[in-house]
Simulated assay, not measured.
Amino acid sequence: MRITCTVNGETHEADDVWPGESLLYVLRERLGLPGAKNACEQGECGSCTVYLDGTAVCSCLVAAGQAQGRSVVTVEGLSRDDGSLHPVQEAFLATGAVQCGFCTPGLIVAVHDLLARNPAPADPEIREALAGNLCRCTGYEKILEAVRMAARS
């Protein structure tokens, strides 16, 4: 089947999509957007988090056909029109919250979503919002620091 959707503000088409193919696979392999990472394929780690019509979802759990006619925003789409980084992306870099970088795109989308809903979250709210995102490299303190920094900016 062919799916057509808007990804990061641009219309994209993907041909020969099979019914069980995930949105994550389409984004990475068919559209060349490697930001969302393929890790657990079970919606447990958050590395593939993207927005689908404004709602943060694990793209590994979304069938590609569900994106037909809808809007998808990936971590690549969070940067500003002039190409500069979003304040959440800048905060992750400034605090060193990137480590190996594998979980970073999903965390950035999750933090972006949190701050859109709650611009001044307390630490327990940050921890709850990021509970679905796993990082194997850090003790999470630098990630929490990045969220606090982004909330201040």
Rank of each mutant, 00 (worst) to 15 (best):
N133L: 02
C60Q: 09
R148P: 04
V75H: 05
V75P: 05
P87V: 10
M149N: 05
A97L: 07
L52Q: 09
D123M: 11
V7G: 00
C5D: 01
K142N: 15
A151S: 15
S59I: 11
L144C: 00
A97V: 06
E29N: 14
R2K: 15
R127T: 02
Y51A: 06
V62E: 10
L23R: 08
G43F: 06
H86P: 03
L85H: 10
E29P: 07
L78E: 08
V26W: 09
G20P: 03
P119C: 06
L78S: 09
G54I: 10
V7D: 00
L78W: 05
I143V: 11
S71V: 13
G43S: 13
R136H: 04
R30D: 14
Q89Y: 06
I108A: 02
Y51M: 04
S153K: 15
L130M: 03
T11D: 03
G9L: 03
K37W: 08
I143C: 02
N118F: 00
L61Y: 07
L144R: 08
V50M: 13
A120M: 09
R148Y: 08
G83D: 00
P19T: 10
K142L: 13
A36P: 15
L61F: 11
D15F: 11
I126A: 10
L115M: 05
C45I: 10
C48A: 12
D113L: 01
R2A: 09
G139D: 14
L23A: 10
V88S: 09
E41P: 02
D123W: 01
V109C: 02
E44R: 00
N8A: 00
Q42I: 01
H86W: 08
Q89C: 06
V75E: 09
V88R: 05
I143A: 04
G46F: 12
G54W: 05
P87Y: 10
G65I: 14
G32S: 13
E76T: 11
E141I: 13
A56R: 14
I126F: 08
N38M: 12
S59E: 06
P19L: 12
C103M: 02
Q68D: 14
A150I: 11
S84G: 09
E29Q: 15
Q68K: 14
T49V: 15
S71I: 12
E10L: 01
S84C: 08
G43R: 09
G101N: 06
A64I: 13
C5S: 07
N8R: 00
T95W: 01
Q99N: 10
C58R: 15
T49C: 14
S59G: 08
L93G: 11
T55I: 14
C100W: 04
L31I: 09
G46V: 08
A14T: 11
L85P: 05
R30P: 11
D113E: 09
S22L: 10
A129I: 07
C40E: 05
M149L: 15
A120F: 01
L115I: 08
P124W: 01
S79N: 04
R80M: 06
A64M: 14
N133V: 05
E76D: 14
G132L: 03
Q89T: 04
A110M: 03
K142I: 02
A64V: 12
E145T: 14
A110W: 06
C45N: 08
P105M: 07
V62P: 05
H12L: 00
Y51C: 07
C137T: 07
R70A: 07
R152K: 14
C103K: 03
A39S: 15
N38L: 13
